[in-house]
Nucleic acid binder design. Structure first.
Lengths: 239, 239
DNA sequence: TGTACATCAGTGAACGCGCGTTCACTGATGTAC
DNA sequence: TGTACATCAGTGAACGCGCGTTCACTGATGTAC
């Protein structure tokens, strides 16, 4: 009836996610280019053409994996951030960073899929963007709360933004509906790119021979970058 | 005689670099996985097996491209930095950053090859490391000069490095033969990772919809990160 | 509850493709005397 | 300067492989009356 879930529906949903899981497994072994429909089908004990009942092409399967990855990262980071007391701004920032790192280390190949080199000839659909901006939006939330509470430390000798940059930043602020000084938003973008630069360096091996394993370097950096964005380094006075 | 360069030698050197050039062209079109020996040979008007007289396998060709890319980036950045007056520390830092960006934008696929996701199943030989550390070494040079001149601004309220991190950093300092406070070296590593995080975001499309085109954001960030590492923001007093 | 029809999942064969690598060979270039 | 031999570049055919995608089909599951 209209209770929707027929046996067929359930079977379809299950197989769809099994296909994605197997594809993820191959991603981990052979990378994005190595993920093949035939191999997925083989591993699942079905004939290769059967996969086409679930995904119309290899590219669509890849797209699904990319969206899933952004979503999983967003979920993980949001969960980590939500667990921290709202007033603990530095703690929330740290939770975002550590949540991202934990997720990235847990599934390095999915991380590489979304933050590594773009797959050549592949165009990300808009649905990915919606997921991709969740993390930067979380960062902005923390800063906005800090701004509202008056606890943000804006450096006095900040060089002014150039007109072009100021307008780009203003448009961003408008698009996400947030009122923050341009300098604060700019520093947030810098901290955001630093975070992923650091994660990529760690995961892609650029820290080998220096700060690898990077646990302590990561935590230290997170603290410094919190200060960089103007967040107070200590928990707020519980007054 | 012993004047070495026979016609054969010259022909070999020329074809070797033509093969690499064609391989780079394919890199730009199809990415690292898309670069194929057969296609290279085809484009050069030779039979595919002939390429094996120059590179023993596809992987060795890729390795050559990776080393070349690090080398080209190192050369470009060194040239940019050398052109700046020694005493102009912030200028040297900016030259390093802009040199890296100019090179990356000029050959985005070679950039992706060395700073994007690692090619699965591929192990970088030590020769790449020698080239890869040239840029961070340049950064350290600038800071060392600043330290020697007493013009480095070390923040007073710096959180102390944890013992593990302090030792990692000390080992790095020893390995590269430099005497700098651990906090300065740590900030250098942070700035270094920020630089490449920002470049990757720009090249891989994460800034679309915010600070793309990123020229002004880049320059602004370079200035802020110079301050972050302790470099004086102005040209030195010419006294 | 039972029948007739429509929908859908999965099959198996095929198309056409490109790939990396090996190997025995021909012919040109270089070297030693 | 000339000859004999060794080195090397490039050929062409072959091996064995895996890939994405299409298509006509069988048989099971769902739906409407």
């Amino acid at each position: 009836m209209n209770a929707s879930r027929t046996a067929r529906d359930r079977a379809r949903a299950e197989l769809t996610s099994e296909i994605k899981n197997e594809a993820r497994r191959q991603l981990a072994i052979a990378g994005a280019d190595g993920m093949s429909l035939r191999a997925v089908a083989r591993e699942l004990g079905m004939v290769s053409s059967a996969v086409y009942r679930y995904f119309p092409s290899r590219d669509e399967l890849l797209t699904a994996l990319i969206i899933d990855a952004y979503q999983a990262l967003g979920d993980a980071v949001e969960a980590a951030e939500t667990a921290v007391a709202r007033a603990d701004l530095a703690g929330r920032w740290a939770a975002i960073c550590r949540g991202a790192r934990t997720w990235a280390i847990g599934q390095p190949h999915e991380y590489a899929l979304i933050y590594g080199s773009p797959v050549p000839g592949y165009q990300a659909p808009p649905a990915t963007t919606t997921q991709a901006i969740r993390l930067p939006l979380l960062i902005v939330d923390v800063l906005r709360d800090g701004w509202a509470a008056g606890s943000l430390v804006v450096p006095a000798d900040e060089p002014p933004l150039s007109p072009v940059l100021a307008e780009q930043i203003a448009r961003v602020a408008e698009a996400i509906g947030v009122e923050l000084p341009g300098s604060v938003l700019t520093r947030a973008l810098i901290a955001w790119s630093q975070l992923f630069g650091m994660l990529s360096f760690e995961l892609f091996g650029q820290f080998v021979g220096s700060v690898q394993p990077a646990n302590e370097f990561f935590d230290h950096t997170v603290a410094l970058m919190a200060t960089f964005t103007g967040l107070p380094s200590e928990c707020p006075a519980t007054a």
